[in-house]
Design a protein around this nucleic acid. Structure first.
Length: 269
DNA sequence: ATGCCTCTGGGGCAGAGA
């Protein structure tokens, strides 16, 4: 890592690591993150394009099973104490899905998470989403020790406030904005985490996701659903946080943009 | 306003995404 800059940590739902590989590699070269949490790999652990990413100096911890879901942590500053899955993680359709992986990178504990979508309120997937968030809270309570830099980063599939969607009236009866989902975020805050809100590089709101359809990105019809929930020690070290919306542009883009944070260097060696 | 959806598995089109 670059000592004068401190540690750069990012989270990005890539919507298939194999389809996104050229853009991910180019972005790693230009953005120079030290730690990256990835979601929606859509590939098994053995199909993960390890060599190309390893060549750029990253160690890789991957938790994937195939066609859907899949999470990973990349780090070029150490990758230790790997944990795949949450405490008491619920199953869906009889399967425990690869949606969470924890790792410690140079003393900073991170979890890369892909929270279930929920599909629609009343759907079994929605109940699963809430159960999954309860298991995430349990895991946070078990791991978030005072003074430790700790954060859960990823695609939460929840807009924390009405300002985090482009038009709240378009979300009547939809997931992502319901009270039980927002209550689950409040429970994470009660467990000692806070929402690190990035700055937008354009317009007023730091959206992180824009649908592929109907010119949602150029019209800025977005949502802030990729979140960083951080302990005090982590949040206090953040010197900058922003959404890299440039990565949502052009051919072969994911429908999510990376959220990037810079953390102050360790005060003592 | 940087573009009117894209991904996987499988080999057509269904299912998921949010």
């Amino acid at each position: 890592m670059c000592d004068s800059r401190g540690m750069r940590i990012a989270t990005w739902n890539v919507n298939s690591i194999t389809a996104r590989l050229p853009r991910v590699l180019a972005w790693l070269r230009s953005a120079q993150p030290d730690v990256v949490c990835l979601q929606e790999l859509k590939c098994g652990a053995d199909a993960f394009p390890r060599d190309e990413i390893t060549e750029l100096g990253y160690d890789i911890a991957c938790h994937g099973s195939g066609r859907w879901n899949g999470v990973a942590v990349l780090s070029r500053i150490g990758l230790d104490d790997l944990t795949r899955g949450l405490i008491d993680e619920p199953s869906y359709d009889g399967e425990i899905e690869p949606r969470a992986i924890g790792a410690t990178c140079d003393g900073v504990r991170v979890w890369s998470v892909y929270v279930p979508n929920g599909r629609e309120p009343g759907h079994p997937h929605y109940a699963y989403k809430l159960r999954w968030l309860a298991a995430l809270r349990e895991t946070v309570l078990a791991e978030n020790e005072p003074g430790r830099p700790f954060a859960v980063l990823g695609d939460f599939n929840i807009a924390p406030t009405d300002d985090d969607v482009w038009d709240i009236s378009a979300f009547t009866g939809s997931t992502h904005v319901t009270e039980p989902e927002r209550d689950a975020l409040a429970a994470l805050r009660e467990a000692g985490l806070s929402d690190v809100v990035p700055r937008p590089l354009k317009y007023d709101y730091p959206y992180t996701y824009w649908d592929y359809r109907q010119l949602a990105f150029p019209k800025n019809r977005g949502m802030r659903i990729d979140l960083v929930y951080a302990s005090g020690a982590f949040a206090d070290a953040v010197t900058d946080a922003y959404v890299d919306r440039e990565e949502r542009k052009g051919k072969g883009a994911s429908d999510h943009a990376p959220v990037v944070m810079d953390l102050a260097p360790h005060s003592t060696p």
